[in-house]
Design a protein around this nucleic acid. Sequence first.
DNA 1: CAGTGGTCTAGACCACCCC
DNA 2: GGGTGGTCTAGACCACTGC
Lengths: 233, 233
Amino acid sequence: MEEKRMTKQDAIYHDLKNKILSGYYQPWGTMDNESVLCKRYDVSRTTLQKAIQHLKQDGLVHSRQGAGTFVNPPEFFNLYSLRSLSERNAARGRTVESKVLFYEEVPCGNLSDIFHLGSDEPLVHYSRQRFLDGKPRLVDNAYMPRYLFRNLNEETLHGSMLSYMETCGYTVSHDLQTIRPIVADDHIANLLCIQVGTPIFQTDHVIYSTRNVVLQFVSEISNEQEIKTQSVR
Amino acid sequence: MEEKRMTKQDAIYHDLKNKILSGYYQPWGTMDNESVLCKRYDVSRTTLQKAIQHLKQDGLVHSRQGAGTFVNPPEFFNLYSLRSLSERNAARGRTVESKVLFYEEVPCGNLSDIFHLGSDEPLVHYSRQRFLDGKPRLVDNAYMPRYLFRNLNEETLHGSMLSYMETCGYTVSHDLQTIRPIVADDHIANLLCIQVGTPIFQTDHVIYSTRNVVLQFVSEISNEQEIKTQSVR
DNA sequence: CAGTGGTCTAGACCACCCC
DNA sequence: GGGTGGTCTAGACCACTGC
C-alpha cells in the first residue's frame, strides 16, 4: 500500500491524537496553547487550527475562547461516528471476515428511482454475513449496477467493497445514510446471534461517485446496541 | 431577544444557505467559484472557506478539488442532525408545547456516577410530554441537581430548559448523546400516539457546563422514524 | 491586565479536473 | 493550459477568561 503524502495539518492532527489516546494529555486537562504548538510544529496558526478543528470533529478536544483547548474524556470520543462499520474496524487492525449468503443478478425494478436506471437494467444483488474478530456483527444486503462493475463476482465479495469500487476507477464522493430502529425477526436474529424481538439499527446507504452516479445501495443491519455522539455548543 | 453581532463568515453562511434553500442555486449545480464569491462578499478566501465549510457540515454542498463546489440535493441536507429536537424546531418557527407529567425531588442515588455527587444530594426529577404543532412528538425524563437550580419549579418546565440553564448563568458546553433503538411499551405508545411494539429511538443526553459540571441528565424518546445523515469521503 | 482562542487579511504555491 | 479548490504563511485585531 502506497503511503500518501501527508499534509502538515494531518501530521499535526495525528501526532496530537496519539498524544491524547496515549494519555500524554490528560482528560479535562488543557493542551499546550496555540502559540507554543505553532512553534513546536513550525507552522502558522491557521494550519494548526485546521488540525485542532479536526480533533474537535472527532470529539477529542474542545476549546473555549479566552480559556484554552481542553482534552475530552474518552466517553466523548466520536470513534463511533456514523461511518461504514467495516471500514472503521479494519482501520483498527481487527479482522473482518465475510460469508456470502447469496449472489445473483436481478432487474432494477423498484430500485430504478434510486439508480436512475431503466427497470430492466441488470443489478448485482448480494447479501453477506460479516464477522468481526470471529463474531457475527453485521448483515448487509446490496445492489450494484452491472454495467458499472462488469468483472464483479462472488470472490470480490470477500473484501471491502469500497476498495473494490475504487480499483474500478470510481471515486466515492457521498454516502447518504438513513438510520432506522427495527426489531430483529427470525432471520436476522439467527444471523446476528441475538434474540428475536431485540431492537437494533438498520442503516441504508446510497453511495455516490464523483460523477453523481449511484454506485451502490446497501442496507446494513448490525448488532450494535448504541451510537454515541457529541455536540458542542 | 438581543440580536448577536454576526461574523462575516456567519453572514455569508446564512446568505448562501438561503440561496440554496430558495432554489437560487440548483441541486447538483455548481456554485459560483471562490474568487467570485470573495469579491461579491468582499472577504478574503480564508473567511469564505470558513463559511463553505459550515455549509458542508450541514450537508448543503460538497467540493471537489479542481472541479468546483456543488449544491447537494435536499435528501443530503443534515437538517435532521443529532441535535436537541426542541431546539431544532423552535428555530424553524414551529410551536413547541409541553405538558408536565410529573415533577418531584429525589436523592441522587444511582445517578451519583453521572453527576459526581453524593447519593443523598437532591435532584429535581421531571418528565414532560412535548407537542410539535399540537401533535405529540417526544417524551423526556430528566434529572438536574437542585443545588445548581435553586429557583427551578414546575412553571419553568414549560419553556426551553437550555435557555433556562443559561439564564441561571451557566454556559452549556458539551452534550454527550447515546442513541439506542427500543420498542415502545404501553406507556410510551400511549403518550406518543403510536402502536405498542413500534421500534423507535431513545436518546440520552448528559449536558455539561463549561466548568465540566453536569447540568442535566435527560432521556428523550421521540416518535421520529429515522435519522438521515451524510458522510463525504 | 496578561493570556487565550476567534476572526480576518492578502497574498502564495500546489494538486487536481477538464478541455 | 487555464481554472478550480486545498494548503499554507505571517501577520493583525478582537472577545473572552481568569487572576
